[in-house]
Amino acid sequence: MQQDTPATSIVSLRDVQKSFGSLKVLDGVSFAVERGEVLAIIGRSGSGKSTALRCIDRFERVDHGEIVVCGHRVDSPDVDLRALRQDVGIVFQSYNLFPHLTIEQNITLAPCSVKRMALSQAKELARKVLAQVGLEEKLHAYPEQLSGGQQQRAAIARSLAMQPKVMLFDEVTSALDPELTAEVQRVIERLAAEGMTMVMVTHEMGFAKSIADRIVFMHRGKVHETGPASILTSPTTPELAQFVGTGDLKS
């Protein structure tokens, strides 16, 4: 049934279509992500890249097409959402830490209530994932006591604590200044080095170029161009050339 996506795919989208009212946001999007791969989705605002990412975790329902994520048929109405979301971690632009809980409680909440992990074990896990993002000393702080970059790293740690098979990053540095962006990027780079499968929507061309194994350039709801990171330096379509030209001031 899925000849064109190898069985090792963690995420695969085939001919995915999605409209908001009369606006077609996704117009036949297909791509696949293999185990250990880092895929960056780039494109203009409104190109459908965030919607495509959110479809993977079923935050948007698709109108047509097939999405398989870690063996879950996400496009099916009977998909077990909670099982899907145990396999998929998602990090948002606005961090969305729970403000009334300490960082430790933010991290232990899901393992304790979803996986029924013992609190002592979950606390140990919290320490471990916070070390992964370099925030061990913030265990007992509340989100509002952290900088934006620290909050985002804590949100990444919170996702990691559920030991997902794939991580989704939805413009996670868009709300941060360059310095804080860099610290969040270093965390993501380390995850990539550890072999985490990741799909990220990003505006940071330099970062996409340095970390992504593959780039998906979306334009008007379609995958307009896809390939290794080198397509950013030698685009084959005028749209990508124009996007890279205006989008990356550093190069």
């Binding site: 975790d57 935050f59 959402l81 909670r82 099982a83 979301r85 145990q86 998929v88 971690g89 998602i90 948002f92 606005s94 969305n96 830490l97 729970f98 909440l109 899901a110 209530s113 979803v114 949100a155 919170r158 996702s159 559920m162």
Partner: peptide, 15 residues
């Protein structure tokens, strides 16, 4: 309660 809080919680597989 901001919408994002609910999405984050859903994303963590909470019931």
């Amino acid at each position: 309660i901001p919408r994002g809080q609910l999405e984050a919680a859903e994303g963590l597989a909470l019931s």
